[in-house]
Design a protein around this nucleic acid. Structure first.
Lengths: 115, 115
DNA sequence: ATCTCCTATATAGATAACCTATATAGGAGG
DNA sequence: CCTCCTATATAGGTTATCTATATAGGAGAT
């Protein structure tokens, strides 16, 4: 089943920061890691990721540094800042609140479920 | 906490159709019902709902009929079609797959969770 | 009587988050 | 050489939501 892209919006920033919470990573690596960890559900495109990373950098959530690889092009690693940790916590709480609300509606409403 | 709107995208069609699965409703009623069932989380705006309903009608997921109220303007009721039922099932499955994948990433990846 | 509020539907234009397509560039293998 | 895999980047398009605005009936207050 093809994943409905219209359901996929706004959470990529959250997921990328979640990856960086564990360790510094470079863009291409995040795409591979996200695919693997999501059980082959997320196929984030390079054209989506790089603008997203630049946006996170502008907001001060991540900072970047170049590092040469053994072969090939030098890699641009990203590191989660203090600000990034805070934003991640907020986004994670927001995600939990949002999915809870959707599931309330899907399962019959707030009347039937204890807070 | 204000809900991060960037996490809220694409699922409103699913939620609206879920409401209509139970019974026919008119637009304004859906806004109120959605607010109530989501435990006051979703404040769907009229300017978002009506174009959404027109879109669902174009796709053949819902059909509409006018019905006078005791007072005030006549109401435009929406009914979920056969096509709408099928689309709803697909969207619900898609939502479950998507949230599962996000939670896999948030909780440490596919390696740690069975199927 | 007119003002404001609640019900009820509708459209225009803006914003944000993705997408596809394309460009650049190093290294490996046929 | 040509193609593929790694690696980063930008341009332009689509879609879903938002805000703002318009219309319109009925209720209650000044």
């Amino acid at each position: 089943m093809e994943l409905d892209k219209s359901l996929v919006s706004g959470s990529m920033g959250l997921l990328v920061m979640k990856l960086l919470e564990e360790k510094d990573m470079y863009g291409y690596q995040m795409i591979e890691e996200l695919k693997k960890r999501s059980d082959d559900t997320f196929h984030l495109k390079a054209g989506s990721l790089y603008p997203l990373l630049h946006g996170l950098e502008e907001k001060g959530c991540v900072c970047a540094y170049e590092q040469d690889a053994v072969t090939g092009k030098p890699r641009r690693y990203y590191h989660l800042t203090e600000q990034g940790h805070r934003t991640l916590q907020e986004k994670e709480a927001s995600w939990n609140q949002y999915t809870r609300a959707v599931n309330l509606v899907l399962k019959g409403g707030a009347c039937c479920v204890a807070g």
